[in-house]
Design a protein around this nucleic acid. Structure first.
Lengths: 243, 243
DNA sequence: GTGGTTCAATGGTCCAACCAATTTCTGCAC
DNA sequence: GTGCAGAAATTGGTTGGACCATTGAACCAC
């Protein structure tokens, strides 16, 4: 028998402030870029200290929801709603090889699932949109001798979106930021990412053919090539890193 | 050529405090559960206001790195290092049926991958630990007529940990919070979760047998049963929800 | 030992003031 | 009127000090 006794909480000022603020945002239909009331006004209206307001806003700022500009005001960076769910992820030592491999393992899991779902659920228009991104990417790949990371990313995003589940895009987008630093400094591997190129079209083909398992398989192959590149880069690096 | 010119920052008190604190943690070799210096002491030592210290700690608290206990002190919840990378995710609207199904799709992708990796990488001790959790859960299931959500969760956590990639646990733990609300109010489905019960042992068997594909397959079956339960619950709910 | 009581330590909140960056207003030159 | 420099107001950032609420340990009576 689990007589559930949730711990009572006599104090939750910060959360109360944030809840009120989320309500305000919805009430006023504020979107990204919208300006929040001043800290002083919030403090007065909510009958709390300005200090408490600041702690609450610091929370939102840390979550990337708002941006504070001294002398100007506090602005929304994203859409906020009262029923948001936060999952702050912390990657220890995210700069090294191990951290990258770990994010790749997550990406492998999500990418495969997203591709499969996409093959099931994508509408005709979405499939056409994905193919457009693919064409753009292939064109960029040809004309710029392999430098197509931006277009590459847009292709994948289109697939995530067509999966019908926005969580895929959100999670992978967060990790993409981390990865992006490496595309700039490809670890000494000159043709980083080249090997993955052909699989973009094979993934698309399986999606267009409504073949979930095929799409999943091709996605796995793509990630595998990236992992190989990464390992090669790590091997190169190890020759230099003698400290 | 990227001549790197980091923007000068006349004000970055909070970050400076956190950097100093991260250094302190490493210096003192503080692990999870470790106790940080008092806010007053930090303020004095770092020559900043206690308020500034609090804002910095609020950031870490929001990131889930520390826990503040009034009257007691501030404690580390996870390992922190100076080179951590944060990616806070906020998911909009996760409270309804659709949101739950979406988190389940993420969980399906990650659970399968984690089980497979676990079958490859888990050590003997870790496998023994998983089996212990499994035994506890099965015992709880028998004696409490199916109410074993807490033990169930611990089993899965053990699997995630043994996958060798802490990101799995972090991501799914965040989503678990959301799910937890439903275990309390099982949507009118009296035996919510019962169907998934036998698959816990089959997953473990495949892991112990070092069979990644088998483990993945069993994990997928488990998630499928949860999805079915959820759909049944939604169907029940739809009969009532006539507004 | 058990169960209260006291008391110091610690996080939580509040206030009032000032600093620093930004924006807005003002007034002068043209 | 226009344009622009400087003043003034606005706003987030920081400080110091005070007090409240909770915790935990020491202490005491029984």
């Amino acid at each position: 028998m689990t007589d559930f006794l949730p711990p009572i909480q006599t104090t939750a000022r910060d959360d109360a402030v944030l809840k009120a603020l989320a309500g305000f945002v919805r009430q006023e239909a504020l979107g990204p870029g919208g300006k929040l009331p001043t800290e002083r006004i919030l403090a007065e209206r909510l009958k709390v200290s300005r200090n408490t307001v600041r702690e609450a806003l610091t929370r939102w700022e840390g979550l990337g929801l708002v941006e504070r500009r001294q002398g100007s005001g506090t602005y929304l960076k994203t859409a906020v709603s009262p029923d948001m769910l936060h999952m702050p992820l912390t990657l220890a030592g995210g700069n090294d090889f191990t951290g990258l491999m770990r994010t790749l393992e997550i990406r492998r899991a999500l990418e495969a699932e997203a591709a499969a779902l996409c093959a099931i659920r994508a509408g005709k228009a979405e499939i056409a949109g994905i193919e457009r991104k693919l064409d753009i990417m292939e064109e960029a790949f040809r004309t710029r001798a392999g430098m197509s990371s931006e277009e590459d990313w847009e292709f994948h995003q289109a697939v995530y979106r067509a999966s019908g589940n926005p969580l895929f895009e959100q999670i992978i987008a967060a990790m993409h930021e981390l990865f992006h630093r490496f595309w700039e400094h490809p670890l000494g591997v000159r043709d980083f990412g080249h090997a993955s190129f052909p699989y973009h079209r094979t993934i698309f083909d399986r999606i267009a053919a409504r073949d979930p398992d095929g799409a999943r398989a091709e996605a796995l192959k793509l990630i595998a090539t990236v992992e190989d590149d990464l390992k090669r880069g790590a091997a190169n690096l190890k020759l230099l890193d003698r400290k």
